[in-house]
Design a protein around this nucleic acid. Sequence first.
RNA 1: GCCCGGGUGGUGUAGCGGCCUAUCAUUGAGCCCUGUCGAGGCUCGGACUCGGGUUCAAAUCCCGACCUGGGCGCCA
Length: 463
Amino acid sequence: MNEEAANEGLVPKSDCLECFNIKNNDKVVNMKLPIENRKYSKEITAENDGEEVSIAGWVHEKRDLGGVFFLIVRDREGFAQVTLHKGEVDRELFEQARKVPRESVVAIGGVVKGEEKAPGGYEILPERMEVLSAASHVLPLDTTGKVGAELDTRLDARFMDLRTERTKHIFIIRSRVLNVIREFLVDRGFVEINTPKIVSAATEGGTALFPISYFEREAFLNQSPQLYKQMLMASGFDRVYEIAPIFRAEEHDTTKHLNEATSVDVEVAFVSAEEVMKILEELIAFVYSKLALYPDLNSLNLQLEVPKMPFMRITYEKALELLLEAGEQIEWGDDLSTSAEHILGERIGEHYFITDWPRAIKPFYAQPIEGKDTCNAFDLMHPRLELASGSQRIHSYELLKQSIESKGLGIDSFEFYLNAFRYGMPPHAGWGLGVERLLMSMLGIENVREVVLFPRDRRRLTP
RNA sequence: GCCCGGGUGGUGUAGCGGCCUAUCAUUGAGCCCUGUCGAGGCUCGGACUCGGGUUCAAAUCCCGACCUGGGCGCCA
């Protein structure tokens, strides 16, 4: 375990609470805590023996042994045991602790006692306790891990699901992954951009869009920042990235699709597809190597193995050959089926790229390979699912126009985009990577909904 | 959209025509217990998704609706 990784980012630098008014049992309590001493559970050790501290958190468990009563308080960092000896503490305080419903929010002030018998090596002998918010019971799900809950139940009560260790850590990991991606890209001279999510027309074709009403006009939620990040290639920002939601109105109903997902989009000028593939695989390896240091992955039932570099590259044609050997026939020009992806994944067993795709199944902006029906596009595959796709882009205005027309798309709705190709557009390439898919493949999680706080799928629009 | 499963206390489950006044665990209420760490022991409370149908009898079989898990398709 790595000490730095264990602490980094989990503990905030300062606290801002000083005094707060709380409504408790219909009477407003003006409570002042010795906030200068308020600590997270993990910040306290046996070495603080004798010190006054304050903690605040949720009542995780209560253990009533008659003469001694244990209150386990959970905060973001872990658990603190509060121990009350009958006869030694104030009777009212003892009763208050005994009666407080589980998962209520409490603030407790007391003295630290180093105690080998206590989990964490210390316990708190309380002097005062405030119930800041009493929880109703019974609870919508169990936060202690004794009884499981189905994903649907968990998502309905996500706020409470996030109080469980595994779920909490998944989202801390998600946050870290996004940070690490930014760190990697910024180090390489990338500029973060923000492009519109409300757009006037279908950007790439292919997927269905969510129509919305935009004053007196119809508009859509954007399926991808593709056209905008390309337009920026004409601006002099020659390395850009965006991490943002994308919207797809497909009625798919699987464990790896969402109607609102997060995409990492990268676009680089003056380079080839091979260059951006390198950036992509290095990024993946970097994210893995950073997150491999995350503590307690195993106890959270999460797995993470740093992939070997460089990733294997096979052409679309080679993929078809491998599939045929395995008894799966795909016609040249057809996209790979789910079972085909699984067969390839099993044969290769690690991340790999599929390159040189037929033009017909890739978007209009992919650069055709001269004299062939293929284009300079690639998919990054994980053995279980597709993670990213990208290509060398067409940067010639005339060729791009032709390509749009040959796909049967209306030139008019692309005018704003095409314009950027008329006044000096460098060659460029890029890709889009699904954040949720990266996370689920990285952590061995089966359902994409697990890695989104409030997922949007075919049926779910709340919470 | 297609094909298979499934809907039983708050949660997770057993039961799959009569033996169901429905099992077990956990949660909840209460009691006993001075070192718990999935504490233990005792008492009590709490459920068959909805609507039709078959049958002497339906949680159990059939039909429909709704919800839900998985596979596929579409898609990234």
